[in-house]
Amino acid sequence: MKKIILLCSLIFSISVAKAQMKIGGSLPDFQLTNNKEILVNLATLKGKTVLIDFWASWCAPCRIANKKLVPFYNQNKNENFEIVGISLDTDKTKWKNAIEKDKLPYEQLVDPKGFDAKVALLFEIEQLPSAYLFDASGKLVAINPTLEEINIQLNK
């Protein structure tokens, strides 16, 4: 029985490892609900430079990062650039309150299963904030990029 459990664990580990995001990988096609209760498909963002920003309302470094991302987004939103915030909050009310308090103007999605959510496992999220930058072709070009690195990508 122990061998069967070990084998199943190994198979699961290998399948999860193949799903992890790596530089050069493609923007995954998934759907999540936004803060207006509308289902959003990330495939609609193809053709734009996209920053996927994982955060949560209870994460102090995330909230500090939001203060920097908002003016950066407002300055660059007309440059074929989008930010998609994906919250790992398990409490939607706290998440929505944080969006309002931080005045986040860009798309906000939630996967309410926290770190156990499919999208968090897909991106192998172990800490917050975590960000992934995809170029206009949908290729992952940077993990946790600085605003300067994003700017360089936008000016290519």
Rank of each mutant, 00 (worst) to 15 (best):
M1T: 12
K2F: 13
K2R: 13
K3H: 14
I4E: 12
I4H: 09
L6D: 14
C8P: 15
S9V: 13
F12A: 14
F12C: 10
I14M: 11
S15N: 11
A19S: 15
A19D: 06
A19T: 05
A19I: 11
Q20A: 11
K22I: 08
L32M: 11
N34E: 11
N35H: 14
N35D: 13
I38E: 11
N41E: 15
L45V: 05
L45H: 03
K46H: 12
G47P: 08
G47K: 13
D53Q: 13
A56S: 06
S57K: 05
P61N: 03
C62G: 04
C62Q: 00
R63P: 02
L69R: 05
P71Y: 11
P71M: 08
F72W: 05
N74T: 02
K77R: 12
K77T: 02
E79C: 09
E79T: 10
F81C: 04
F81I: 01
F81W: 05
E82L: 07
I83D: 00
V84A: 06
G85S: 13
I86N: 01
S87M: 03
D89E: 04
T90N: 12
K94W: 04
W95V: 09
K96Q: 09
D102V: 08
D102H: 07
L104V: 07
L104R: 06
P105S: 01
Y106N: 07
Q108D: 06
L109S: 07
V110Y: 09
P112A: 09
P112I: 06
K113D: 09
F115M: 07
D116R: 05
A117E: 01
V119D: 04
A120T: 00
L121C: 10
L122K: 06
Q127F: 11
A131E: 04
Y132H: 00
L133M: 12
D135F: 09
G138T: 01
L140D: 04
A142L: 03
T146C: 05
L147W: 02
L147C: 01
E148D: 10
E149I: 08
I152H: 07
I152S: 02
I152N: 09
N155L: 12
K156N: 02
